[in-house]
């Protein structure tokens, strides 16, 4: 009985802690967005963050999409051959890549790269009193640090996902035409025929949401970090874990909302 009560207490504390963190993140996001729409703006910081989040993530996102698209085409071919459905490779590959794998894998890869970097940089600024210095120099950290990161990630992730989708389809095309005996022109025509605007739109919506989430997780955990160097480490780890979980949760919610009818 006592053990059960203790387990309930632990579970309750865990749930409360999680809700408090979500509430804190929501307030943090609302504050950042509220400041982002009013001047002063920092276009140079925004462009710098767009380059950091988008341009420098291209290699890792591109390679991930290429390998995953190729592996997916191979799997669909093998699985489809059990019921004579090998010809579905182009259609299933493009739908799976555009609807799910492109945005989710790009979101996760960029979260691994960018959320951790944002959290580490901002937490280090906290530890070294650079955030305090900003305030004494009459510069709002939300406008100068947080808003450019949130806006940049939200704008850039859709562009990155368009590239990831294209490279993912290319991966499928390459494996299908070099190993599985597909005709290149037929593969592309079939791909185009089965790709619908709804797929692209949901992909871009997901990408924007994931971009916002991964920047928010990095900025929030960095900004709220305490406890010196160990705190920087905790902030970095938490940023990545929170970003991964929230991205997967958001993916489920958006998928159900868009395709669940």
């Amino acid at each position: 009985m006592r053990l059960a009560a203790r387990a309930l207490v632990t579970l309750g504390a865990f749930v409360l802690q999680g809700l408090a963190a979500l509430g804190g993140m929501a307030l943090f996001a609302a504050t950042a967005l509220g400041r982002a729409v009013r001047p002063p703006w920092y276009p140079a910081r925004l462009l710098e963050q767009m380059a950091l989040v988008g341009w420098f993530s291209l290699p890792v996102v591109g390679l991930t999409a290429l390998f995953t698209g190729a592996a997916l085409a191979q799997q669909v071919f093998v699985g489809g051959s059990r019921f004579n459905a090998e010809s579905t490779v182009p259609a299933i590959t493009v739908i799976a890549v555009v609807r799910e794998l492109g945005p989710v894998l790009a979101g996760l890869m960029v979260a691994g790269r960018v959320s951790s970097a944002m959290a580490a940089e901002i937490a280090t600024m906290r530890v070294t009193e650079q955030l305090d210095a900003l305030v004494t120099l009459r510069t709002d950290p939300f406008r100068y640090l947080i808003a450019p990161r949130l806006v940049a990630a939200t704008l850039v992730l859709p562009l990155l996902v368009i590239v990831a989708n294209a490279i993912g389809v290319l991966g499928g095309y390459l494996i299908a035409t070099t190993r599985l005996g597909f005709n290149g022109a037929t593969y592309l025509v079939t791909t185009a025929r089965y790709l619908e605007w709804e797929d692209v739109r949901s992909s871009l919506v997901k990408a924007a949401v994931f971009g916002f989430i991964l920047a928010l997780a990095g900025c929030y955990n960095g900004f709220r970090s305490t406890g010196g160097a160990a705190g920087v480490g905790r902030a970095t780890t938490n940023a990545v874990v929170v970003a991964f979980i929230l991205i997967l949760l958001a993916n489920l919610v958006i998928t159900v909302l868009v395709f669940g009818q």
Partner: peptide, 21 residues
């Protein structure tokens, strides 16, 4: 508490520009 991401001259004049380039 100098800003690591900025060169020294941008640090020194930060109060005059509020961090804008």
């Amino acid at each position: 508490a100098l800003f690591d991401s900025l060169p020294v001259w941008r640090n020194v004049t930060f109060a005059l520009t509020s961090g804008r380039s």
